[in-house]
Each structure stands twice: as C-alpha cells, then as structure tokens.
C-alpha cells in the first residue's frame, strides 16, 4: 500500500492521510486523464492529485455542514502541499507509534471503493485536541437544537 499526507488549517486543523490499497495507481491514470506511460514521477503525482481531490472534497463537505449549522459563511480552510508518506509498504510500517508526540486525536475515516476499477482508498482525518474546538462547538450547537 501507499499513502499520502496533507495538512489543513483554518477552522479545523489537522492532517489527512489517504491510504491507497490494491494493485496500483495505473488503473486511476485514465480516470484522471493522464495519457501515456506513467513514470515514477508521474505515478507519485497521480497519487498526490487523487489524495488532494479526495481530501479537498471530504473536508469541503465537512466545512459546508459547519457553515449550514452555524449559518456563517466565514468558516474556511486552507491546505498545504500534499506529500508522499510511503510507497509500497506494509500497513504496520506506515506510522511508528513510538515516534508520535500526541496521545489523543479525533479520527474520521472515509472509505472509497471503485468496484469497476478494483480501487480502494481509505481517507483518515486526524485532528489534535486543540484543532477541533470549532467542530466540537458546532456539534454541541447541533445537538442542543433538537
């Protein structure tokens, strides 16, 4: 499996990790409109592009909901450049638990499957405690509104 990470900041702060499973990214190349053979650079670029689109869509959706609940158009996010975390490694090799500096984090997971293309991706959003104050406030408001 391969993984791409990307950080986001603004009303939410954290990192998105998109984990690609399955045979490879070649099957996505035509979907994204890449022509010809993918070199090593092209394959990495494809991973980054797909991860960027998925994380932008997921966080964009989350942001839309925050805006809908709070009725404010102010909520916003910006993204940093995505980077490849690992290529063709085993799941256990992705993160080394002993090197983490945090103990608690909010985890949101979204799974993507394209059945026709044998493509599976897991999108994992990890937000540190101080990065989710806005989200916690919105969820509280939402619950009390019932």
């Amino acid at each position: 499996m391969s993984a791409v990470r990307q950080s986001f900041r603004g009303d939410l702060r954290g990192e998105v990790i998109v984990i690609f499973c399955g045979p490879g990214t070649g099957i996505l190349a035509d979907l994204m409109g890449y022509e010809g053979e993918l070199g090593a650079g092209g394959e990495a670029e494809l991973l980054l592009d797909v991860a960027n689109v998925l994380s932008g869509a997921c966080l964009g959706g989350l942001l839309e909901q925050i805006r809908a609940i709070t009725g404010s158009r102010e909520a916003d996010l910006s993204f940093s450049m995505p980077s490849v975390m690992a290529r063709h490694v085993l799941p256990g090799q992705l993160i080394e638990p002993t090197r983490l500096t945090w103990t608690h984090s909010l985890l949101l997971e979204v799974n993507f499957t394209l059945k026709s293309r044998n493509f599976v991706a897991h999108l994992v959003m990890l937000m540190p405690e101080e990065g989710i104050q806005k989200l916690a406030g919105v969820v509280d408001d939402f619950i009390t509104s019932f």
Partner: peptide, 21 residues
C-alpha cells in the same frame, strides 16, 4: 490546463511538486 480545470470544477486547491515536475 487539466490542473487548472480541476480547481475551477471542484473549487479545490491543487499542487505541483518539484519532485514530480
């Protein structure tokens, strides 16, 4: 143009890294 089009279509950020290009 594909990169630019994605931004118009999805309203998303897009990135180009020197490692790839």
């Amino acid at each position: 143009s594909k990169k630019v089009k994605t931004v118009f279509t999805l309203g998303n950020f897009a990135f180009i890294a020197w490692e790839n290009r």
